[in-house]
């Protein structure tokens, strides 16, 4: 069954077309990822689905409710965590949760079951002002506030931005538990290894959805030959590899650089020989399998 449906949604700000006839469906209980560059339209889509702004054209439905005409009922069954920290900084952790509980006609005690995992981590700081929490704790508090009324659908706009790697893993464990409980979760992220944990991912570019697919299929359909190269000097290596015949594009990737080639590429041995000739040491060039992040790079650089 479909939980979220968007049909030909468009939104323009002045001369900027933020969304161009965007359509997608998210099934009930799905963990659905949105990826794309800054300004691609992810936040605009979240705001329309959460009934916070009106689309110029197109229709949406969330659990059968229209964000335009049924916004009151829709807000009772959705949770929304905006990209920017939007809780009350001068209220304590507990006061923020109680405030949101009251707004949604419930109590901390009644909503506690769903948020118990996260609330336990916050409890030692429950009397601390929200503004004085670390980045990871702020995001956990915001998630608690978005979940306090046990929504059927959860919208999370870059919830792990500014969050350290350990807290990010904890945050995603919580999301998986929520999905297992049957909640529909739509989440955007700039971290491709997080996107890889979603059931399906939509890639948005300049206001249009280029595809929505499972991470497995995205990686399978990469369709290019990908190599990794490393040497004793990594900074200048980028431009030197880029200038070699047959390299379509090359980008840094942790402890190596990745590159994609066309038919005129003369092979890894020829490249290694060329690099040794211009003074590089410890050169390794090898064919590798793409990851989600390589697929993102391919679509963005195309």
């Amino acid at each position: 069954m479909d939980s979220i449906i968007a049909e030909n949604i468009s939104k323009t700000y002045g001369t900027v077309k933020a969304l161009k006839e965007v359509s997608l469906t998210v099934q009930k209980g799905e963990l659905f990822g949105l990826i794309g560059a800054d300004g691609a339209g992810k936040t605009t889509l979240f705001r329309i689905l959460a009934s916070l702004i009106l689309p110029d054209a197109g229709k949406a439905s969330v659990e059968g409710l229209d964000p335009v005409s049924d916004y009151r009922r829709l807000r009772c069954i959705t949770g929304y965590m905006p990209g920017r920290f939007s809780l009350y900084g001068d209220l304590t952790v507990e006061e923020n949760i109680r405030f949101y509980a009251t707004v949604f006609g419930t109590t901390l005690e009644a909503g506690r079951v769903l948020i118990d995992d996260i609330y336990k981590q916050l409890e030692p700081f429950r009397n601390r002002a929200a503004s004085r929490l670390s980045g990871g704790m702020k995001q956990k508090l915001a998630l608690c506030c978005a979940l306090i009324h046990s929504p059927s659908v959860l919208f999370l706009d870059e919830p792990t931005t500014g969050v350290d790697p350990v807290s990010r893993r904890e945050f995603w464990l919580v999301l998986k538990h929520l999905r297992e409980s049957g909640m529909t979760v739509m989440v955007s992220t700039p971290y491709m290894e997080e996107a890889g944990q979603c059931g399906r991912i939509a890639f948005i570019k300049e206001g249009s959805i280029l595809y929505s697919e499972t991470p497995g299929r995205i990686v399978e359909s990469f369709g290019e030959t990908l190599y990794a190269v490393s040497s004793d000097r990594m900074h200048t290596l980028l431009d030197d590899v880029r200038s070699f015949t047959g390299i379509k594009y090359c980008y840094s990737f942790g402890d190596s650089h990745h590159f994609v080639v066309d038919e005129s590429f003369s092979g890894e041995k020829a490249l290694a020989g060329y690099l040794a000739g211009i003074g590089y040491g410890n050169i390794t060039v090898k064919k590798i399998q793409p990851t989600m992040e390589d697929c993102y790079m391919k679509l963005s650089l195309r």
């Binding site: 990826i35 794309g36 560059a37 800054d38 990209g83 870059e158 931005t161 500014g162 700039p190 491709m192 980008y251 840094s252 992040e293 993102y296 790079m297 963005s300 650089l301």
Partner: peptide, 10 residues
């Protein structure tokens, strides 16, 4: 680079 997409980060 907090919140910046993979291309722009690079």
């Amino acid at each position: 680079t907090g919140g910046v997409d993979p291309v722009t980060r690079r």
